[in-house]
């Protein structure tokens, strides 16, 4: 029986008595160590017969133990100085970290997280600026300052005098002050900025929806792409979401209430992000907890299928959810 370990020096194979029996060197250790066994390694394993490789057959393994605790002796047997080893180690570790960093940054989950945050921040910015516009425009035309379509009105018409027919009367009897022309110009540009943010947010949400439908079709179908995306972002990745119990998914986004519950025994939250789901929001108040729990259970299944399986099962899940099973 042999014990082996893959290191920056190559695969080291130790015999039963702990002596170095064989070394398979790597041309590019950073690639060998982040991939599976190389052709040459497989050949050596085949030739030697009984070999247990740490990280392949077992973890931790005796091969790894022998290497880690006897590094100095191993280097001596290989005729390598500690300095040389450290240099090789440093270069390889830097290369591997770079590879892993690139892989992490490439993941779709990362892009989804950025889009979710961008959409949220755009909404916040938009609300903040819209309430400023309201206060500002109030000076000039208080009668319409509370209007839902204030942004559109200001962008399109600007001052009171330019307002369409239906607002003419209010405009003529308005208690508002006259604004200087230059003030009105700045005010209108401010309103256009808000309209632009709104358009931008729709663009972000559109892209988010596209990505989610590709990345997690089941979850998106069941939860709606936006709630699905928030869940993925909150969990960190689709895979982490898929590993969560349904009860956790049910309260994602309600951390404040959850910790208040755990710390001080307040009432536990019934729902987090999934509150926005029409089934939950539309349920009578006393049923909401129950609906949220059922929905979360199906979302957990959907996330697992998306992360590990791939078949489109959402319609079936939805049918069972609505049937209360």
């Amino acid at each position: 029986m042999y014990h082996a370990v893959r290191t920056v020096l190559g695969m080291l194979v130790f015999s039963e008595d702990g002596r170095l029996a064989e070394v398979v060197r790597y041309e590019k250790p950073e690639l060998a160590l982040t991939g599976g066994l190389t052709q040459e390694e497989r050949e050596v394993l085949e030739r030697l017969g009984e070999v247990r490789v740490e990280g392949v057959h077992e973890f931790p393994g005796r091969g790894g133990e022998l290497f880690r605790s006897g590094l100095r002796r191993v280097l001596e047997e290989l005729g390598m100085s500690e300095r040389e080893y450290r240099q090789r180690l440093h270069a390889t570790a830097v290369a591997i970290a770079r590879l892993r960093l690139r892989r992490a940054l490439q993941s779709r989950d990362m892009r989804i997280k950025q889009l979710v945050s961008a959409a949220e921040e755009l909404e916040e910015a938009q609300n903040l600026l819209a309430s400023r516009l309201r206060e500002w425009y109030f000076l000039h035309f208080p009668e319409v300052a509370e209007s839902e379509e204030l942004v559109e009105l200001v962008v399109r018409y600007g001052s009171r005098a330019e307002m369409p027919e239906r607002l003419r009367q209010a405009a003529e009897s308005s208690a508002g002050a006259e604004l200087e022309e230059e003030d009105m110009r700045v005010l209108r540009e401010f309103a256009s900025g808000i309209a632009e943010l709104r358009r931008l947010r729709e663009r972000v949400m559109g892209r988010l929806e596209e990505l989610m439908r590709e990345h997690a079709p089941n979850l998106s179908h069941l939860a709606g792409a936006h709630i699905a995306a928030r869940l993925v972002a909150a969990a960190g990745s689709l895979e982490r979401l898929a590993r969560m119990p349904a009860s956790r998914i049910q309260v994602l986004g309600a951390e404040k209430a959850l910790f208040r519950h755990l710390a001080r025994g307040a009432k536990p939250p019934k729902h987090g992000y999934i509150y926005q789901h029409p089934l939950v929001k539309g349920a009578p108040k006393r049923q909401r907890g129950r609906v949220a729990r059922a929905l979360a259970a199906k979302l957990a299944i959907a996330a697992r299928v998306d992360a590990f399986g791939g078949r489109f099962v959402a319609p079936e899940l939805e049918r069972r959810l609505r049937a209360g099973r």
């Binding site: 920056v8 290497f67 605790s69 590094l71 240099q87 180690l89 440093h90 570790a93 830097v94």
Partner: peptide
């Protein structure tokens, strides 16, 4: 990583410490 490029004694490892199998091959006692 940028720090490691300047410091020869600093070995950067991008991994989750709850899964040491992801980086055991770089370590020693």
């Amino acid at each position: 990583l940028r720090l490691a490029e300047q410091r020869h004694n600093l070995i950067p490892i991008l991994a989750d410490a709850s899964s040491p199998e992801e980086y055991a091959f770089l370590l020693e006692r």
